[in-house]
C-alpha cells in the first residue's frame, strides 16, 4: 500500500536486501573512500593514511578534461541511443503481439554472445582492410580507405551498439503500459500527432526514458573495454584511467579517488534527475 509505514514483517523481509547493500555497496564504497585518502609505496601497495593529495591531483586540468570528455562521450552515446531506441521501442510495444515477441527476441539476441566477441567483430568491420572499407572501396574507390578504427567515432559506435538494448527495454515497458484511450481522447479533443506526442505520449513514457537514460549513461561513463579495443587505448576516458591506476600504474589510492569522484557525480546527477521528474510520474 503506497504511503503505509512498513511493519516489522516488512523490515524482516527487507533484511536480505539491506544486508546485501551494506556488505556489497556501502562497505566497498567506504573502503574506496579510505583507500583514496592513502598513498602508494614504490611497489604499488597501499599505505593507509589521511591525505587529500589524490583529490588535489583530480583538479589538475588533465583530469578535469577527462571527466568532461567522459561525460561528453556518455551524453552523446545516451542521446544517440535515445534517438534510435525510442522509436524502436515505441513501434515494438505497439506491434501485433506475435510480431512483438519476435522483435523483442531480436533485441535480446546479441546478449547470447560474449560482449567482447561482439566488440572484436566491430574491429573486423571497422579496420582499414575491414568489411566496411571493402564496401566503400567497391562503391567509390576514391574514398577508401576511411580511417575508422581507433577513432572517437569508433568508440561512440561501440558504446551505442552495446547499450542500445538497455534503453529500448525500459522504454518499451513504459510504452506498453501506455493507455491507448488517452491518446484517442487527445485526438478527439483535436490534437494532431505533433501535439499528442509532446503533450501526452512523452510525459507518460518519461519514467521509461529516465530509467533507460540512467542505464545507458552510468555504465557508459565508466566503460573501458570498448574504449581500449575500438579506441586503441588512446582516447583516455574515465574508465580507462581508473582501470590503468589499478593494473598499470598500480596507484590504487589515486584510482580510488577517481572512483569516489565518479560516485559523487552519479549521486548528484541522480538527485538532479529526481528533481526533474514530474510528480505523479515517479511510480513507473
Amino acid at each position: 500500500m503506497p504511503g503505509a509505514r512498513p511493519g516489522a514483517l516488512a523490515w524482516l523481509l527487507l533484511t536480505p536486501l539491506l544486508a546485501w547493500l551494506a556488505l556489497f555497496v556501502v562497505l566497498p564504497a567506504l573502503l574506496l573512500l579510505g583507500c583514496s585518502l592513502g598513498e602508494r609505496d614504490e611497489f604499488g601497495q597501499v599505505l593507509w593514511g589521511f591525505s587529500l593529495e589524490n583529490y588535489a591531483r583530480l583538479l589538475d586540468p588533465v583530469y578535469l578534461g577527462i571527466f568532461l570528455r567522459s561525460l561528453g562521450f556518455a551524453a552523446l552515446t545516451t542521446a544517440l541511443c535515445l534517438l534510435i531506441g525510442y522509436p524502436v521501442a515505441y513501434h515494438l510495444a505497439r506491434a501485433a503481439p506475435r510480431v512483438r515477441e519476435l522483435l523483442l527476441l531480436l533485441v535480446m539476441v546479441p546478449f547470447w554472445t560474449s560482449f567482447l566477441v561482439r566488440t572484436y567483430a566491430w574491429m573486423a568491420i571497422l579496420r582499414e582492410e575491414g568489411l566496411l572499407n571493402a564496401l566503400v572501396a567497391w562503391l567509390q574507390p576514391a574514398w577508401a580507405p576511411l580511417g575508422l578504427l581507433y577513432t572517437p567515432a569508433a568508440v561512440v559506435t561501440g558504446l551505442v551498439y552495446s547499450y542500445l538494448p538497455f534503453l529500448i527495454l525500459p522504454v518499451y515497458a513504459s510504452v506498453e503500459k501506455l493507455d491507448g484511450a488517452l491518446i484517442e481522447a487527445a485526438h478527439d479533443l483535436g490534437a494532431g500527432p505533433w501535439r499528442v506526442f509532446p503533450a501526452v505520449i512523452l510525459p507518460l513514457t518519461l519514467p521509461g526514458i529516465a530509467a533507460g537514460v540512467t542505464l545507458v549513461f552510468v555504465p557508459a561513463v565508466a566503460m573501458f573495454a570498448v574504449t581500449d579495443l575500438l579506441g586503441g587505448a588512446r582516447v583516455p576516458l574515465l574508465g580507462n584511467v581508473i582501470q590503468n591506476q589499478f593494473l598499470q600504474a598500480r596507484d590504487w589510492p589515486f584510482g580510488a579517488a577517481l572512483g569516489v569522484a565518479l560516485l559523487a557525480l552519479f549521486l548528484v546527477s541522480q538527485l538532479g534527475l529526481r528533481a526533474l521528474r514530474p510528480r505523479g510520474a515517479l511510480r513507473g
Partner: peptide, 19 residues
C-alpha cells in the same frame, strides 16, 4: 629502479591522459 618506477607510472598516466 625502485621508487622511480612510481614516478614513471605517474608521468605516463599524465601524458596519455593529456592526449
Amino acid at each position: 629502479i625502485g621508487r622511480a618506477a612510481a614516478d614513471i607510472d605517474r608521468l605516463v598516466t599524465d601524458l596519455k591522459s593529456a592526449k
